[in-house]
């Protein structure tokens, strides 16, 4: 059996009893044959200490609940291979958002920005009896966009979002904005571009590309942002 003791340093804070946050050193027996992912080990830790708090649900990288900062990089606990992690494994809540407790952050600001881009199809035309047609090529434009799971790994790794979370839409929101701009069924392209043509909402992106580096779904918000900028330039001339 490939069992070994692993060292963890975990950010702890319970506002009900702690005056200030602290880093807790914990060691845990890990059986690499069973405990494959970081979430498996967190489950094990929680079985011993039920006060350890984090979000989780699907455990397969599709619900976006268990995003956290793992050894300095944002990622999903359920997709992070445990044996690849350098020790001590340092776990912190996602940076840049208020911490509620332990690894749980307040995501209000993140969702506010997502909601601000009108994340729904706008087509005020008469509803046809059947589906609106879309060619396979046009549909392909949505690949790499619609798969976003709103885990916030990207936005909370972005310095521009840290400084201006109330004004800069952030990579997740902008990726989703482009998802609707790129959809041939959507009729609000101009309004969407108008809304983003703003020194903060879009143009705080300085192509640092942390978002691309951390996206657990392999999506590329920087590319989507570039496409939006390109469309703004094109409609200006």
């Amino acid at each position: 059996m490939a069992t070994s003791t692993m060292q963890f340093k975990i950010y702890r804070y319970d506002p009900d009893k702690d005056a200030a946050p602290y880093m807790q050193d914990i060691s845990v027996e890990v059986d690499f044959a069973i405990d494959r992912k970081l979430l498996d080990v967190l489950t094990k830790l929680k079985a011993k200490d039920d006060t350890l708090s984090y979000r989780r649900s699907c455990r397969e990288g599709i619900c976006g609940s268990d995003a956290m900062n793992i050894n300095g990089k944002n990622g999903l606990a359920c997709l992070t291979e445990i044996k690849d992690l350098k020790q001590p494994v340092v776990l912190r809540p996602l940076p840049g958002l208020p911490v509620i407790r332990d690894l749980i952050v307040d995501m209000t600001q993140f969702f506010k920005q997502y909601h601000s881009i009108k994340p729904y199809l706008i087509n005020e035309g008469p509803r046809p009896d059947r589906e609106r047609l879309q060619s396979p090529e046009d549909r392909e434009e949505l690949n790499g966009l619609y798969e976003c799971i709103l885990c916030a790994c990207c936005s909370t790794s972005c310095p521009s979002f840290w400084w201006n979370p109330d004004k800069f839409v952030g990579p997740a929101g902008l990726l989703n904005a482009y998802r609707f701009i790129a959809d041939t069924r959507d009729q609000a392209t101009n309004e969407r571009l108008d809304d983003l043509e703003d020194p903060y909402r879009l143009f705080r992106c300085h192509s640092i590309m942390n978002c691309v580096d951390v996206c657990p779904k392999g999506l590329n918000p920087t590319r989507a942002i570039g496409k939006i900028k390109e469309m703004m330039v094109r409609r200006a001339i």
Partner: peptide, 19 residues
């Protein structure tokens, strides 16, 4: 299902552009 498509669901498409 058609209603869902109208809501914006990104279904894959046939060559004719249908779901």
């Amino acid at each position: 299902v058609v209603e869902l498509e109208h809501f914006g669901m990104p279904f894959d498409r046939t060559d004719e552009g249908k779901i």
